[in-house]
Structures are given as structure tokens and as C-alpha cells.
Design a protein around this nucleic acid. Structure first.
Lengths: 185, 185
DNA sequence: TCCGTCATGTAAATGGTTACATGATTCG
DNA sequence: CGAATCATGTAACCATTTACATGACGGA
């Protein structure tokens, strides 16, 4: 039985916006936090069971039989604040694209171009997705407490994606030159 | 006994530059790939044992008694190319700072400023580290096959860090305004 | 009726870190 | 000699994904 404070934080925080079933929780995390967070069912359901047992969330029957709509209890809200105050745990970096590019001489410039242009495509897709998210968030009422924070995280994604695109363009040029050199010998 | 092709790739790739002990391998990964990759002893030693058993690396006695200097075999080099060609596995995102900022209304603007300015400090530290790495890499002989690829990964880090700083500055201003609003009403 | 979606959960395998145990070598 | 570093490895734990099993409900 896993005991991840990281997952607890994400679950409690999401439930602080709105009571939800485990299924809806996963969907909400995927849609709204997908750019910087993820949770799987295998994490969410055991986490909900644990939080329920600890009295941090309460489960009400939903409209469908067997569905449990979870909401924060007072203790859950206190625990949420406590977890929020903890410094974010630094996850060890693992970027397979950069690892391969670092050892790019093994593959050659042509294969590396594909690697980088794939990364560029991912960044533009992310930018598109963020544009939608920004429109949707800006359509929310201005007095909504969460709105400015949501926009900040969207902006983080935009800065990051634009940087990735700029880097990819610069790098693709360098690789094009290397590729010509490869071919000429 | 874990069987991570990711770790295998990193280990084989590092050994393709230079034969090393497990200890030196971890150090080399930390120093040279630290901005986008990490491996712990608990991964490296079992991986080396496995690769040795599969005939992908060979172990020679080092100068110290009990130390094993590992080098790639021909089969190991073939395996390296094979792993390099595999598309990089996308690691699910987990950014604790952005998670907390998304739910920033729970903490309030003041606490969020600390979160963001910590992130800014990390980015400037990264930029400093990358400046050193760039100097060292540019000092390598220009004909060194790996040099341009190393510079590309350094540039990726620089773009990413500069974007993080620009975002942090923009966000700190927004948070300062929110903080004033919090205090006034 | 049958399919897609909503919904809950479990089991197994994987991936990974951390802490520990052990000992050689080097340098002050 | 004692401390720091080099070096190898294991064991325990934690986190996480994937695949699977199960079933209700709504609509074509």
C-alpha cells in the first residue's frame, strides 16, 4: 500500500476545488494539470482509500450506484495546507531526448535531426494546448480566486515551450551543417 | 534485479566515451549529464553486473585492488546503437512547484512568491553551472566528434533556464500585485 | 442489444532511491 | 594514525505503471 505525500497533495488539492469521484479526479488531473503533473488509477484509488480511512476525505454516494463522490473534510483541508507548505520534492531529471543527443555522434546528425524535430513538434502541440487552456481560463470570472494562479502555470508552460522551439530551430540548423559535413566526409 | 533499458543506455553510452569503474560512471553521469539525467549506485552496479553477464561490457582490474574498469565489447557497442535508435520514453511530468502554484490560493500570494523565487534561484544556479560546462566544452579540440553534440545539450539547458528566469520575473510581479490586494482586502 | 463511457478496484512487475556494510588507498 | 575519497555491492522500501477484472448506465 503506497504512501506518497505527493499523490495525497494532488488529490486533496483537486478535491479542494470540487468534490469528485476517483474517475473524475484522474480526468481533471489529466486535463488541467497534464502539462506538469500526472496520476494513474493505480495511485488514485489506493490514495483515496487511505485518505478516507484517515478521515481526510468523506465519500458520498453519487448519482450512479457504486460511485463515490469524495470531498474534503476539515481535517483534509488542514492536511492540504500542511502539504502545500512543504518544499516541493525535486524529481531527478530523465530526458531521453537529450541523453541521446549528448551521445549523438553514435547515431549521426541525420538521426539526431529527427530526434530534435520530434521534440519541436511536441513543443508546438503543447503551445496549442496551452492556448486553449488560456482562452478557457481567461473566460472564467475575474473575481475567481484561483484564476490568476492558473494563468501563472499556463504561462510557465508557454515560456518553456517557446524556449524548446527556439532551441530546436537553432539546433536543427547546427545539425544540418553537421549532416552536410558527414556526407562530404 | 531491475532491468531498465534506460539505465543500460546511459551506462553503455558513457562507457563508449571512456572505460570506467562503476564509481567513476556515477560521477561522470552526475557531472556531465546532471542537467538532464541521473543514476544512483543502486541502479548502476546491478546494471553493470547484468551487462557483464550478457557480454555487453568487459571488466578489467583497475589500479586499485577490487576495482573493476568496465569497457564496451563489440556486442555492447551494437546494443548501444540499438538502444539509441529507440524513441525516447516520455517520463510523466511531476513538477511540485507548479502543482503548488496552481493551487496557490490555498497558500496565498506571499508564500507563492517564495516558491517562485526559489525556482528562479535554481535556474540562475543552473545557468552558472552551464556557463562552466560551456567553457570546458569549448576548450575541447574542435575536431572532437562529440563536441558539437555536447554544446547542443548545454544550449538546451541554457534556453530552458533563461525561460524559467523570464517566467519567474513576470510571475513575481503578478504575485506582488496579488499580495498587495490580499493585504488591502 | 450492444457499445462506449463511467466507475472502482487489485495484482504484478518495474523502476528507482536510500541507507547500510565493507574495505582499500591516499594524503595530511 | 585518522579522515576523506575511491570502490563495490545489497536490502529494504517506496513509487508508479500496466494490465486486468468487474459491473452500472445511457443511448444508438
Amino acid at each position: 500500500m503506497p504512501r506518497s505525500t505527493q499523490t495525497d497533495l494532488a488529490v486533496l488539492a483537486a478535491l479542494s476545488i470540487e468534490p469528485m469521484t476517483g474517475y473524475a479526479l484522474r480526468d481533471a488531473i489529466r486535463v488541467h494539470l497534464g502539462a506538469f503533473w500526472s496520476e494513474s488509477f493505480g495511485q488514485i484509488y489506493p490514495a483515496l482509500a487511505r485518505l478516507r480511512a484517515d478521515g481526510l476525505v468523506a465519500a458520498d454516494e453519487g448519482d450512479r450506484s457504486g460511485s463515490n463522490v469524495h470531498s474534503l473534510t476539515a481535517a483534509g483541508r488542514a492536511r492540504l495546507v500542511e502539504l502545500m507548505r512543504e518544499p516541493p520534492a525535486a524529481t531527478p531529471p530523465r530526458n531521453g531526448m537529450l541523453l541521446r543527443l549528448f551521445f549523438g555522434s553514435v547515431l549521426g546528425a541525420a538521426a539526431c535531426r529527427e530526434l530534435v524535430s520530434d521534440a519541436r513538434a511536441q513543443a508546438t502541440a503543447m503551445l496549442d494546448h496551452l492556448a486553449d487552456a488560456r482562452r478557457a481560463t481567461e473566460a472564467e470570472p475575474a473575481h475567481l480566486l484561483q484564476r490568476p494562479y492558473w494563468l501563472m502555470t499556463i504561462s510557465a508552460g508557454e515560456h518553456s515551450a517557446r524556449a524548446a522551439i527556439a532551441w530546436a530551430d537553432e539546433t536543427l540548423e547546427t545539425l544540418a551543417k553537421l549532416d552536410r559535413d558527414d556526407r562530404l566526409g
